[in-house]
């Protein structure tokens, strides 16, 4: 029958119209909520909620109530920032060498401490120009001491280019919520998500905490 295909198409769109359960719009940074959702959030029945907070309920009913919404994001997400552990970094600059764009700038001075496997250096400058970074993560992959991790945030819009450079001070002071990308030791942690509250300490972030003699020999002596 001619025209049946067109009718079938109409049915498909109508099905999606009446059953919007596969709606894929993501609202950000906040989303509109209905009174039912609000009630569920505060853990009471809809009617109780409406009676208790008539003003909010009215606002929600007219579609003006918003709650902050965070995007669903896998813990492996390679975000637009970096997490870096001063305690772990030896200043070896593997990351800088491995970056395809050469946008990591490292200046070190010897500090004379012996930490872990290498000579510990004092990091004077550790600049990552995320204005040019493509978040490929090769630097993270290259870091032999698990000092550098991808972050999970993405709200890095700035007004000036020079603000886009992540400096060592910022790296030191920002909360440590590394992405689990290429870091199985963090991924293995029970229920860890970078959006959570808990920081990951520098001990937890490393893969080989206290290298045994045997391990070191295996790793280095044979070369």
């Amino acid at each position: 029958m001619y025209g049946a295909g067109m009718a079938k198409g109409l049915l498909v769109t109508m099905k999606n119209f009446v059953k919007p359960d596969r709606m894929f719009t993501v609202q950000y940074p906040d989303r509109k909520v209905s009174p039912t959702e609000l009630a569920k959030m505060s853990g009471v029945g809809v009617f109780t909620f409406m009676r208790k907070n008539p003003k909010t309920a009215f606002k929600a009913m007219t579609g003006q109530m918003t709650v902050p919404a965070r995007l669903k994001q896998h813990p492996r997400f390679r975000g637009e920032e970096f997490t870096w552990y001063e305690q772990r970094c030896t200043g070896c600059a593997s990351c800088a060498k491995y970056c395809p764009l050469g946008i990591i700038r490292i200046v070190t001075s010897p500090s004379g401490e012996q930490v872990q496997e290498g000579q510990k250096y004092h990091l004077d400058v550790f600049d990552i120009d995320i204005g040019r970074c493509m978040f490929c993560g090769l630097c993270v992959e290259a870091c032999p001491y698990d000092a550098l991790h991808m972050g999970s945030g993405f709200e890095e819009g700035k007004y000036r280019r020079k603000d886009l450079v992540v400096t060592v001070d910022r790296l030191k002071s920002q909360p440590k919520h590394p992405s689990t990308w290429f870091r199985p030791q963090i991924q293995g942690k029970e229920g860890y998500h970078p959006h959570g509250e808990k920081d990951v300490t520098w001990q937890e972030a490393g893969r080989h905490e206290q290298p045994s003699r045997k391990h070191q020999e295996e790793k280095w002596a044979k070369r």
């Binding site: 994001q73 896998h74 492996r76 997400f77 390679r78 493509m134 978040f135 490929c136 993560g137």
Partner: peptide, 27 residues
């Protein structure tokens, strides 16, 4: 794309494969 995000942390510019295998196992 969500699956890709699980695999390799990115949705479009995946950079997932490396000479000699893939970057990391699936979660």
């Amino acid at each position: 794309l969500e699956l890709f995000e699980m695999l390799c942390g990115a949705r479009i510019t995946v950079s997932y494969m490396r000479p000699g295998g893939v970057l990391q196992d699936a979660p």
